[in-house]
Amino acid sequence: MTEYKLVVVGAGGVGKSALTIQLIQNHFVDEYDPTIEDSYRKQVVIDGETCLLDILDTAGQEEYSAMRDQYMRTGEGFLCVFAINNTKSFEDIHHYREQIKRVKDSEDVPMVLVGNKCDLPSRTVDTKQAQDLARSYGIPFIETSAKTRQGVDDAFYTLVREIRKHKEKMSKDGKKKKKKSKTKCVIM
């Protein structure tokens, strides 16, 4: 069974824990209790493949930012979460993405942009803004509501699919490099 290491990042209060708990335990946590770091595991079937999701729910508070490099190193894919009623959390996505790329030393890291709290009427981040940002990053965008469960499975499952595509691409690139290195030079 394939294991996928997913990391949920975003500013404090955007609903990272609520999304994760909704996926794992099928219930909505409405009281806000700032996370330092929590880890969850769940076995699911995605596109006919049974897999184990190892999900790291991270601290959004700035005082825990020193811990970010460590979990970013171990993560295979990242859910970059903002709240649709919090423009600052949307603007912060850029910083999370840049930090992930720096730590992973790669421009090509599996990510999904997630606009959470889409059940709320007080939207300050337009869907088109988020779609445009995701398009500019070359990553999928999904709106979710941890409260109603809308888009929750889709967000995590899409990230797994992005990781699969990335692994497939990397193995193809690896095979191309191996083929090239088999060419021999004969000096007579």
Rank of each mutant, 00 (worst) to 15 (best):
D119W: 04
R68P: 14
P140R: 02
E76W: 11
K101L: 11
S145P: 00
T74Y: 09
D57N: 00
I100S: 07
C118L: 07
G75V: 12
M72C: 04
T35G: 00
K177M: 11
L56N: 13
G174H: 01
I142H: 06
V152L: 10
T144L: 03
R41M: 04
K177S: 07
F82G: 12
C51F: 08
K5P: 15
E62Y: 05
T20Y: 00
A59E: 03
P140L: 02
V45A: 11
H95I: 03
F90R: 15
F141T: 02
E31M: 09
L113E: 01
V9I: 11
A155P: 08
I84Q: 15
K5F: 00
D153E: 08
R73I: 08
K88M: 05
K176I: 11
D108S: 07
L159V: 09
A155Q: 13
V160R: 10
A66E: 10
K104A: 15
I163F: 04
T20F: 00
Q70N: 06
R102T: 10
I163T: 04
M67F: 09
L113K: 14
F82R: 00
K178W: 04
E98W: 01
K177R: 06
R135D: 14
K172V: 11
D57E: 00
V29Q: 05
D57L: 00
C185K: 15
Q22S: 11
R123E: 10
A146V: 09
G75K: 04
T144I: 15
T144Y: 04
V125E: 09
M67N: 14
T87P: 04
D132C: 04
V152W: 15
T20H: 00
S65F: 08
D153L: 08
P34G: 01
T20N: 06
K184P: 03
T158E: 05
R102P: 02
D47P: 06
L52V: 15
Q70C: 09
G48E: 08
K167T: 09
K176L: 12
H166D: 10
N86A: 10
Q70R: 03
C51K: 06
K42C: 08
V160Y: 10
L79T: 02
I187F: 08
T183D: 09
R102H: 14
Y32C: 02
A59F: 00
H27C: 15
